[in-house]
Amino acid sequence: MEFFLHAYYQIAAIILFFIGFYLLIVTPNLIKKILGINIMETAVFLFLISLGRIGGGQRAPILHEGIRWTECVNPLPQHMVILGVLMTLGVTGFALFLVVKIYAHYRTLNSDKLRRML
């Protein structure tokens, strides 16, 4: 119980991740699949961010006199998340572009139908 109280970020991330995964697997709709991926990624980002709390501090990691590093958050996960968000952005954008193209060609977004057409 203790764990759940302290790790609520992580738990949320895991729940989110599985929601995304569920979407990805279950829905035949391509856009929803992409959404699912996005949710999964968000979950991972959340998880990453939650890793940033090293000593319980919540300050920005600007080190100057008098501030111990335990008071700051770890900057590394944040930097990773920023990069990750960028990547996700690109990927999502491109995926949506492809979806549009596919819709133009096939007039459907149902991946089951598409598989049959392939």
């Binding site: 992409i34 990927v91 995926a95 979806v99």
Partner: peptide, 20 residues
Amino acid sequence: ILAGLRYLILSTTGGVLILL
């Protein structure tokens, strides 16, 4: 295009897993 999208979805999923 379809093959591309398929690859994209799967590889992104893979990417997410890696990240996780």
